[in-house]
Write a protein that binds this DNA or RNA. Structure first.
Length: 270
DNA sequence: AAATTCTCCTGAAGGC
DNA sequence: TGCCTTCAGGAGAATT
């Protein structure tokens, strides 16, 4: 499932194909996504030139003079650049047609969305209350520590809260907590500022490393052939229940925290 | 305010 | 082999 690194990799992959290009049409084959694709999207986006391809959290922003197309890939969404004559496959729900190429949105589970906003995207209800960008300087242990003071719930839920920090999904939350040696169920308010510094660094590192790994498979996001698949990750705890911890050899445990599977080493994480 | 539960949907995996 | 059940999961909305 696309987490922040996949979204950023997608952004980098499609940006060169979109920048400065004019949208000549929009084809909606299936508009029933997380929210319905607006009937007037074609009218709004058509004829517009793409000025920038940005990312905020896991949202992609295609900026034009008239407004912004906000795209979220949900759980199973992906974007590819395909030739104009390319035959759509199952679950290829939307085409953003350019003069020489097509930006094609594919999403089997339809948890994603394509929304148009004429205002500054930062004012959109979905983006307005988003927390810090984990790879920007604003994010750090100080911020986590400050926001955690009234949070009595599990730290794993805390760092997955988009109002705190964006882009930390279930997989990277487990990985970052392992790297930082923090037990996922520990109450957020009961972690020292010092340990939060380590956690912030771990989050930054695990995301950055994944983005770097994604760079080597950028071509997978572009072209008619092959799947716009997500790159494989080096996971040390996620999905490794019962397997030995890479650090101490103890067996990795799985536990449901906040309705989500969480993986951790009972010996390395406290 | 914070925490919990529910919800959307399909494909993969497991059971028999 | 095939059918049925279960589960996973981003994140907003509703509820406590």
């Amino acid at each position: 499932m696309p987490e922040l690194p996949e979204v950023e990799t997608t952004r980098r992959g499609i940006e060169p194909w979109l920048l400065g290009e004019k949208v000549t049409g929009v084809v909606v084959r299936e508009g029933r996504l997380r929210w319905p694709v607006a009937a007037e999207l074609a009218a709004m986006l058509g004829g517009q030139r793409v000025k920038a391809v940005e990312r905020r959290g896991k949202y992609l922003l295609l900026r034009t003079e008239a407004g912004t197309l906000i795209i979220h890939l949900g759980m199973s969404g992906s974007l590819r650049i395909v030739p104009p004559e390319s035959e759509p496959r199952r679950h290829d729900h939307v085409d953003i047609v350019l003069r020489k190429n097509v930006l094609r949105y594919h999403d089997p589970r339809r948890f994603g969305c394509l929304l148009w906003t004429a205002e500054a995207p930062g004012k959109h209800p979905l983006l307005r209350n988003l927390g810090a960008e984990p790879l920007e300087p604003e994010f750090g242990g100080g911020l986590l520590h400050a926001l955690s003071c009234k949070r009595r719930g599990a730290v794993k839920n805390f760092i997955m809260d988009g109002k705190v920090v964006v882009g930390v999904g279930n997989i990277y939350a487990s990985e970052a907590l392992f790297a930082a040696g923090i037990h996922p169920a520990r109450a957020a308010c009961r972690i020292s500022r010092h340990r939060y510094a380590g956690l912030a660094e771990a989050i930054r590192e695990v995301l950055q490393r994944a983005i770097d790994a994604g760079g080597t498979t950028l071509r997978d996001f572009v072209g008619a052939e092959g799947d716009a698949g997500y790159f494989s990750r080096e996971l040390l705890v996620y999905g490794r229940e019962g397997a030995p911890c890479v650090t101490c050899g103890d067996s990795i445990r799985k536990r449901i925290i906040g309705q989500r599977s969480s993986f951790y080493c009972p010996r390395c994480q406290h």
